[in-house]
């Protein structure tokens, strides 16, 4: 595999009462990596150690080839950090704040201003950037936090729960932006979340931690290569007042098993089926065209990833139970 961006070897962090990280060894390459774990799993603790701000109790770690124990300041010049908590003063504008943070990262005044204008535009803040941050919505504040992490064009960014507090649309936009940080900006990303599901579309690689221990580290294609679930949604017509049902029946008639997407948003209108390859897509298209319905959406859903998490979770609970 390619270059290593983050590597930890048997990294532990013990507080007087809790072990936040327990002999964690991971090896993370370029791209977007998700760091997933429940509350208290040790995600933020790991980021603090990787920024060189909190010493590990044992083990070692390197970021961009620099040892976190001795090269903290060099690391912090090359990486960006978006904290999970609020960090924005309400009485200054986004522009003022991001320019200041750019200079705090070592950018000369002119470059700081130019990059601030660029970066705020990239995260989708326009006229409002001259208004005091205190009046911003949660979504806009998250964008300012993201902008200050990117403004100095780092090689790597740590995003601690960037989707926290966002509504579904804001969440999707934030995930889209995160994807672009790598594809368009060429910056590697380590993004944390306690929702495994939301990272599956965004990340190339997912590291799952629990109780400070590594549960699993693999690329998202590993997680999901076994099956691809196809979600489809169609319109109704006068001829077929329940278009969803009509499609299901037609697919059944051709020997394709279809589930209704119960439990998903828009359940009842969404059909899920297992894609066996290109022929499945052709079949769905033909069936819908024959019925004269409109296709609202057809998208891949990778369900497997959450099942992996659930399985592990169940296994861990069992283990804990036996241990006691």
């Amino acid at each position: 595999m390619g270059v290593t961006v983050i590597v930890t070897e048997s990294l532990s962090k013990r507080f007087p009462r809790v072990t936040a990280l327990d002999r964690l060894s991971v090896d993370i390459g370029p791209g977007v990596t998700g760091l997933v774990g429940a509350n208290g799993a040790g995600k933020s603790t790991l980021i603090k150690i990787l920024l060189g701000l909190s010493p590990a109790t044992e083990g070692r770690a390197e970021v961009l080839g620099l040892d976190v124990a001795t090269k903290g300041a060099d690391i912090r010049e090359r990486v960006g950090y978006m904290p999970e908590h609020d960090c924005l003063p309400p009485d200054v504008s986004a522009t003022e704040f991001v320019v200041h943070m750019a200079r705090m990262s070592g950018l000369p005044p002119t470059a700081a201003r130019e990059r601030t204008a660029d970066t705020l535009r990239h995260v989708g803040l326009y006229e409002e950037r001259y208004r005091p941050i205190g009046g911003y919505s949660t979504g806009m504040k998250q964008r300012v936090k993201l902008a200050q992490a990117l403004v100095h064009d780092p090689q790597l960014v740590f995003l601690d729960e960037p989707t926290n507090g966002l509504d579904p649309v804001g969440r999707d936009e934030m995930l889209g932006l995160i994807r672009r940080i790598h594809t368009d900006f060429g910056i590697s990303v380590l993004v944390t979340s306690h929702l495994l599901g939301e990272l599956e579309r965004t990340c190339d690689h997912v590291v799952v931690v629990d109780g400070g221990k590594l549960l699993r580290s693999s690329s998202t294609t590993d997680f999901t290569q076994t099956t691809t679930t196809l979600a489809i949604e169609v319109t109704d017509t006068d001829e077929h007042p329940d278009g969803t049902r009509a499609v299901r029946d037609a697919l059944h008639a051709r020997g394709v098993t279809v589930e209704d997407g119960s439990g998903l948003p828009g359940a009842g209108h969404i059909l899920l089926l297992t894609a066996a390859g290109d022929e499945t897509y052709d079949l769905v298209r033909d069936v819908i065209a024959d019925l004269g319905l409109g296709l609202v959406r057809m998208e891949q859903r990778r369900h497997h990833i959450s099942e992996v998490f659930k399985d592990n979770d169940a296994a861990r609970k069992e283990a804990v139970g036996h241990g006691n």
């Binding site: 200079r103 705090m104 070592g106 995260v123 672009r180 368009d184 900006f185 060429g186």
Partner: peptide, 25 residues
Amino acid sequence: QTRIHNIGYRSYDGPRLGRAYARRS
């Protein structure tokens, strides 16, 4: 939703003035 923001990213390879400059800032 991503297209709106797509204005071409420019990377930065100018000077990084480091710790003393950050303190002065």
